[in-house]
Design a binder for these strands. Structure first.
Length: 867
RNA sequence: GCCGGGAUGGCGGAAUUGGUAGACGCGCCGGACUCAAAAUCCGGUGUCAGAGAUGAUGUGAGGGUUCGAGUCCCUCUCCCGGCACCA
């Protein structure tokens, strides 16, 4: 063993040894229990960022811990390789997205390897390769045939200048990011996955996922949003024809309070009313402005205009005016809503703004209704009952709904309906760098799925998009084809799939990544699935995780799998954040400065007083601490840390700075602290070995100090086992190891048994820490136990005999305030304790001669004297 | 706007089931070593008062439950994530 710690040499050598031994290749045949540990695969954006390092270190720690606990571990890795950034990079650099993506993958794969992750690289999956996406296309055709995929129109962001569809991300303040043109809503035909057909199962199964964070399950429940309501119609006659305006409501009990209806700008009633009404036509045109993002629609000013058309209230027969509202969307629900201003806050404000009638039909006892101002109780369905509602008066929420739904049904104008907030999943994208949708449009046969023997539909890779429309739609060699059914001239679909589709099933493909005769190999898939531990960013709590759960059920129902859910345990990791610094330019714009180029100035107590740019020594402004991003220039390149300190230090810092689920603040000083600790560990082992070889303690008489050290060691083993296995709080596991080594540092005995105890502590510490810092631990282990590999060692087990304590310290409180402590034998009975505590000096002083009201004894913890 | 989460010293965080608030690390202060610096090692470090023993106070704000609240309940403020075409 060398005297000083040189991470560079150690890490490359140890990684080479793992490679040579094929140490992390997972076998499908094992008599150990399996443990499939999966981290969300990266988008190959160029180089690894800190979020990746954090994600993959967490996965590696859990994988290595479970390996030590006797599991057959599989930890795969792959590339979520289709996506928008590749097209942007292509346009900026005039490089085809494919070339850019593949070169990024090569670079990032090397970066991942330098982190020392125990990955089975033989299972690598890349989603932009035909051998992957052909199975996605195959599944698409099966689902199309089953009716689980259908076509309908839906609104998208349209850039009228670039003549292209924009992602929500590409709409900035209502304008196209490249053209600057005002964005419009436009309805286009798209393919949809019928996810709502699985809404009930997706919702109900959440209760069978105890390994998922409660907050994620709650978010998914609310997203799916099952509600029990009433779908009903307002009949009307227009142009001599009878028709019905359908709406859905969860508040059918307020139906007698409807004073108007609102429809979307694209609703047929609005279109009809706009004929011969230029003002309304202009308003409908105005409603098209802006994007389709829900956050924008929900926060914009609610505007409306009357259509002049009336419909008939289905129960009262009253005339109800129909308005066009900019907040009603055609694509969602019926594209029309009933409005009850008295009992819906949004309707209330709309009615006030346009002077529409407000009719109270719900009363809460003891409250007074006023149409001047909105009050919380107006919307209270728990405490209210019907008023001004004729035969429904005095009914509560449930009774009213039942009665009203019954009456609507009797008139064939509606009835109860289960409604989901969840909408079907539109997957068509008018982009190039994605998986081609395997459909052929035939003038005679319609939409025909591409037959199995013609799959995959290969995406040409040597294309540079120009930002205007879809490149595939301009390539006759791609879209010209013949109909598989009739053989006539036909046109291939040029839209590609949402990249969420690829990431919805990659976890299953890892079980049999090279399978060529099916999407999955049945045996391999059923051996490895479900994933035992899934790890990824909290930002994926809803969409990705819901889509993957949906796909798992789809694959199950076409006979590819037996399980119901893809991920048994889920860990949602927090963001990596860093301080921001900037200077204001003359034009008022902020110039963001990277934290690596800044020195922070502190006062005598260490409080920051300012910051300067290292290059010129002049002050910079300290901004907030935010998620690492290009726009704030506060990203720290993990490669620089690995180069300077080694992967073990980077991993140690990341795991130590915060528990996995919280956001993690980057700190250069913290990284140095982590490095210092590894150096101290190294030196402790080196100094110990200098005294000559010794085996770990097994038996023999021990001093009080040695006994105390062994007690701490075995308590630490217990604690860290729990931290890794149950709590997944690696920061506290590291802290406990540090405390243990601090205690070893203070242990100065050098008798033969004392040296054996020191050996035991060092061996255990290295094993305990090895999931987090595997390279340095492997190296020290081999020095402590020549000829053996740490990789083959089991996780330490606590020795029950070392954990026996005969004396404990009890805290003494008076009225809940700490006043002292007491050392007593462990099994001291309550009466003796009470006597002891009453004789305690501090207690007598507090009681000042008075008698205590009562004494609370918490076993092994404290005694509280209530005066 | 809607859904979910968070707030503890100068900083990151710990306190696992309502029972010693601030473990561990960073920073800072003092000391040792050094011609000096760096590195390393030792000691101190929530705030206020006190020479000290000690006392008071303290977990975003306000209220409540309890012998006892960072932890449970109610009201509020600010910050962060998601909102269906970023991944």
């Amino acid at each position: 063993m060398q005297q000083t710690y040189h991470p560079k040499d150690i890490e490359s050598r140890v990684q080479q040894e793992w490679d040579n031994a094929k140490a992390f290749q997972a076998s499908d045949l094992s008599n150990k229990p399996k443990y499939y540990c999966l981290s969300m695969f990266p988008y190959p954006s160029g180089k690894l960022h800190m979020g990746h390092v954090r994600n993959y270190t967490i996965g590696d720690v859990l994988s290595r811990y479970h390996r030590m606990k006797g599991y057959n571990v599989m930890q795969p890795m792959g590339w979520d390789a289709f996506g928008l950034p590749a097209e942007n990079a292509a346009m900026a650099n005039n490089v085809p997205p494919a070339a850019w993506t593949y070169s990024n993958i090569d670079y990032m794969r090397n970066q991942l390897k330098s982190l020392g992750l125990g990955i089975d690289w033989s299972r690598e999956v890349t989603t932009c390769k035909p051998e992957y996406y052909r199975w996605e296309q195959w599944l698409f055709t099966k689902l199309f045939e089953k009716g689980l995929i259908y076509k309908k129109t839906a609104p998208v962001n349209w850039d009228p200048v670039d003549q292209t569809v924009l992602a929500n991300e590409q709409v900035i303040d209502g304008r196209g990011w490249r053209s600057g043109a005002l964005v419009e809503k436009r309805d286009i035909p798209m393919y949809f996955f019928r996810i709502t057909a699985y809404a009930d199962e997706l919702l109900d199964e959440l209760d069978n996922l105890p390994g998922w964070p409660e907050q994620v399950r709650t978010m998914q429940k609310n997203w799916i949003g099952r509600s029990y309501g009433v779908r009903f119609a307002f009949p009307y006659t227009l142009d001599g024809k009878k028709d019905k305006l359908w709406v859905f409501t969860t508040r059918a009990d307020t139906i007698m309070g409807v004073t108007f209806c609102a429809v979307a700008a694209e609703h047929p009633l609005a279109t009809r009313a706009a004929q011969g009404n230029p003002a309304l036509a202009a308003f409908i045109e105005e409603c098209k402005q802006g994007g389709v993002a829900e956050a924008d629609i929900a926060t914009m000013e609610k505007k409306g205009m009357p259509t002049g058309i009336s419909v008939t209230h289905p129960l009262t027969g009253e005339d109800i005016p129909v308005w066009v509202g900019n907040y009603v969307l055609m694509g969602y629900g019926e594209g029309a809503v009933m409005a009850v201003p008295a009992h819906d806050e949004r309707d209330f404000h709309f009615a006030k703004k346009y002077n529409l009638p407000i009719k109270q039909v719900i009363q809460v006892p003891g409250e007074t209704f006023s149409s001047d101002e909105w009050a919380e109780w107006y919307g209270d369905k728990e405490r209210g009952h019907c008023v001004n509602s004729g035969e429904y008066d005095d009914l509560n929420y449930e009774q009213a709904i039942n009665a009203i739904a019954g009456d609507l049904k009797a008139r064939e104008l509606g009835g109860k309906q289960v409604h989901f907030r969840l909408r079907d999943w539109g997957i068509s994208r008018q982009r190039y760098w994605g998986c081609p949708i395997p459909i052929i449009h035939c003038p005679t046969c319609g939409d025909v799925p591409v037959p199995d023997n013609q799959l995959p539909v290969v995406l040409p890779e040597n294309v540079v998009p120009d930002g205007a429309g879809s490149p595939l739609a301009k390539m006759p060699e791609f879209y010209q084809c013949t109909c598989p059914k009739c053989g006539g001239q036909a046109r291939r679909e040029t839209d590609t799939m949402d990249t969420f589709v690829e990431s919805s099933w990659y976890y299953a493909r890892y079980a049999s990544p090279a399978c060529t005769d099916g999407m999955l190999d049945l045996n391999a898939a059923n051996y490895w699935l479900p994933v035992d531990q899934y790890i990824g960013g909290i930002e994926h709590a809803i969409l990705h995780l819901l889509y993957a759960r949906f796909f798992h059920k789809l694959m199950r129902d076409v006979g590819l799998l037996l399980s119901n859910e893809p991920f048994t345990n889920l860990l949602t990791q927090g963001m990596v954040i860093a301080p921001t610094f900037y200077r204001e330019a003359d034009n008022g714009k902020k110039l963001w400065i990277n934290p690596a180029d800044v020195d922070v100035v502190t006062d005598a107590r260490g409080r920051p007083t300012g910051a300067t740019l290292r290059a010129d020594g002049q002050p910079v402004v300290i901004g907030g601490t935010e998620k690492m991003s290009k726009s704030k220039n506060n990203g720290v390149d993990p490669q620089a840390i690995i180069d300077q300190y080694g992967a073990d230090t980077a991993r140690l810092f990341m795991m130590f700075a915060a528990p996995p689920e919280q956001s993690l603040e980057w700190s250069d000083a913290g990284v140095e602290g982590a490095f210092r600790f590894l150096r101290r560990l190294w030196k402790a082992a080196f100094d110990h070995l200098e005294r000559g070889p010794v085996s770990a303690y097994t038996s023999g008489e021990l001093s009080t100090e040695a006994k105390a050290l062994r007690l701490q060691l075995h308590q630490t083993i217990q604690k860290i086992d729990d931290d890794y296995g149950r709590r997944k709080t690696f920061n506290t596991a590291i802290a406990a190891t540090m405390e243990l080594l601090n205690a070893l540092g203070k242990f100065n005995e050098d008798s033969p048994t004392a040296c054996q105890v020191a050996q035991e502590v060092l061996e255990s510490a290295v094993l305990l820490l090895s999931p987090i810092t595997p390279h340095v631990c492997e190296e020290i282990w081999t020095a402590l136990r020549p000829g053996s590999r740490l990789l083959d060692q089991a996780f330490p087990k606590a020795d029950p005999s070392a954990l026996v304590q005969d004396e404990i310290e009890l805290m003494i409180q008076v009225n809940g305030k700490l006043r002292g402590s007491l050392r007593v034998a462990k099994e001291t009975d309550k009466a003796t304790l009470e006597q002891l505590v009453l004789n305690h000096e501090a207690v007598q002083k507090q009681l000042a001669g008075g008698a205590p009201k009562k004494i609370v004894v918490v076993p092994d913890r404290l005694i509280n004297v209530v005066a």
